[in-house]
Design a protein around this nucleic acid. Sequence first.
DNA 1: CGTGAGCTTGAAGCTTGGTTCAAGGTCAAG
DNA 2: CTTGACCTTGAACCAAGCTTCAAGCTCACG
Lengths: 149, 149
Amino acid sequence: MKIGELAQRTGLAASRIRFYERIGLLGVAQRQANGYRSYPEEAVLALRLIATAQRAGFSLQELRQLLPEDLEQWQHDELLATLRHKLQSIDLMLAQLMQNRAELGELIAQIEARPEDMDCAGNARRVLSQMRLLGRNEEAAGRPDQPSS
Amino acid sequence: MKIGELAQRTGLAASRIRFYERIGLLGVAQRQANGYRSYPEEAVLALRLIATAQRAGFSLQELRQLLPEDLEQWQHDELLATLRHKLQSIDLMLAQLMQNRAELGELIAQIEARPEDMDCAGNARRVLSQMRLLGRNEEAAGRPDQPSS
DNA sequence: CGTGAGCTTGAAGCTTGGTTCAAGGTCAAG
DNA sequence: CTTGACCTTGAACCAAGCTTCAAGCTCACG
């Protein structure tokens, strides 16, 4: 398929696909006789993986390192090793994402921990101070500020 | 505390803290008589929160919108909704990645459990085509997305 | 007093991840 | 055989998110 179709099917701009090829994230595409790039079906999946991984927080740099070079001349053992390596890297992505998730969850919990406890002065103040701190950090804490350190 | 101490305690560069003030993500810091910025204790928490949220995938733009000036009348529901939406999208990424992982695991198992089947051309080709896809291409589940502006 | 560490400013620079543009070549339809 | 959609290239441009630089002020210490 030509780049336009690939772009349409992945939802990525053609310029972006060319860009990925330029920086070596995608292999060099085959060419038709007229010079047009020609992609196999799998390219759709490849690009979707890249997009997903990006959303998962991976830089293109990282992805380039994670995706091995030329599969054409792979031998069996080598292949298995690479696949397993890939599995590991996916696990790594998962770990990172789950950490992201946990951090976000924490954030939510902190903010959520305010509904009824509002009248609990201690908690309220804690939450409030965090909220305030989100707004403008320099207010409150009304003490003069001497060269403290 | 002065900016240097704040930087040290948050692990962020002082330039970065000034940058956040410049773009309005942090409120304007109070000044000591000599013109030095002076931060309250809470600034430490504020910056950590920002850093955490960033790691959780929020842009500074988003954070600025999420953390409006007058937190006093902050709409918790709105904020919580946004955070939860973010959480969902992380979960979606997780699901996609886990599917990738499962498929890859299957593939490895297939290849491993293939002592004699090698001469079965059909199977070999199927496996090979999948392998190829892992090389410069890779499979993924998911839908298109526009990660950046 | 002067030396160095730390603070100030604005402006310029850098990296990442692309998009846009200009100047073309290709191709199917009318 | 022209028109318009689609493709090619390299180079320029862009936004986000910082860092670095230059030039100067402040402050504690010996």
